[in-house]
C-alpha cells in the first residue's frame, strides 16, 4: 500500500502500517545521528528538556550537506546514514521521547524493533546515497540545534518536508523486521555458495 502521511496530523495511522508499505511524508522531520542520540540521552539523564518535540516529528538518520545563503540554510544533499549504528541508543530514545517514525537505511536490529512494537512505531528506509533527490523534498530548514557543539553532520536539523519518499516500511508495529528476515535468507544462500566453492572443479 502507498500512504501519504502528514506529520504530526496522521500519527494515529502509523500503528496500521505494514512491512513493505510505501510512504511519502509531509511535515516536520528532525535529523539525528550517533552524537545527537547520545546527547538526547545525556540531556534526559540531567533532567533537561529538548528544544523541540521528537514525538511530533519523524526522526531521520541523516547528516546533511547544508549551505547558508543570504542568512538562510539550504539543504543540498540529505540522504540517510547507516541506521544500525543507532541500534546502540534507539530503544532508549524511542522510550524516552516517544518517537514513532524512524527513517534511515540498511535496517535495524531486534532491540529497536521491540521498542517500536511497544510504542506502535515503524522504521522505514530511504534509498541510500540518493542525497540530492532527498534534499529536493526538504524545502526549508526550520531550525538547527547543537550546531556549534556537534558540527553540521551531527547537529539536529529540523526540516519542513514535502512528499519525502518513497520510504519503504522495513520494521512494522507488529514487530516484523525485513532486516532479520533477509539476513536469514542471505545466510542460507551463503551456505549454498560455500558448498559450491567446496565442490568446484575437483
Amino acid at each position: 500500500m502507498i500512504y501519504n502521511l502528514r506529520i504530526p496530523e496522521d500519527l494515529d495511522k502509523v500503528s496500521g502500517l505494514k512491512m513493505g508499505d510505501v510512504l511519502y511524508i509531509t511535515g516536520k522531520v528532525f535529523t539525528a545521528r550517533d552524537e545527537a542520540h547520545q546527547l538526547m540521552l545525556e540531556l534526559h539523564e540531567k533532567g533537561e528538556n529538548l528544544p523541540f518535540k521528537p514525538s511530533e516529528m519523524v526522526m531521520y538518520h541523516c547528516g546533511p550537506v547544508v549551505k547558508k545563503e543570504n542568512g538562510e540554510w539550504k539543504v543540498l544533499a540529505a540522504g540517510p546514514t547507516t541506521s544500525s549504528r543507532m541500534d546502540l541508543f534507539e530503544k532508549e530514545v524511542i522510550e524516552i521521547y516517544g518517537v514513532r517514525i524512524i527513517v534511515g537505511k540498511g535496517g535495524m536490529g531486534d532491540r529497536t524493533a521491540e521498542a517500536l512494537k511497544n510504542v506502535g512505531g515503524i522504521y522505514a528506509t530511504y534509498t541510500g546515497g540518493a542525497g540530492a533527490l532527498a534534499a529536493r523534498s526538504f524545502r526549508k530548514v526550520l531550525d538547527v540545534y547543537f550546531l556549534e557543539e556537534l558540527g553540521s553532520p551531527e547537529a539536529i536539523w529540523i526540516f519542513d518536508a514535502e512528499n519525502f519518499g518513497p520510504l519503504i516500511v522495513s520494521i512494522d508495529p507488529q514487530g516484523n523486521n525485513w532486516n532479520k528476515i533477509s539476513r536469514e535468507e542471505m545466510e542460507k544462500r551463503k551456505r549454498e555458495i560455500f558448498e559450491l566453492i567446496d565442490h568446484e572443479g575437483h
Partner: peptide, 15 residues
C-alpha cells in the same frame, strides 16, 4: 538521483 545531482551540480550523496 544521479541525473538530478548532475543537472543541478549537487553532491550525489550527502556523505
Amino acid at each position: 538521483n544521479v541525473e538530478y545531482a548532475r543537472e543541478k551540480s549537487l553532491p550525489i550523496c550527502q556523505d
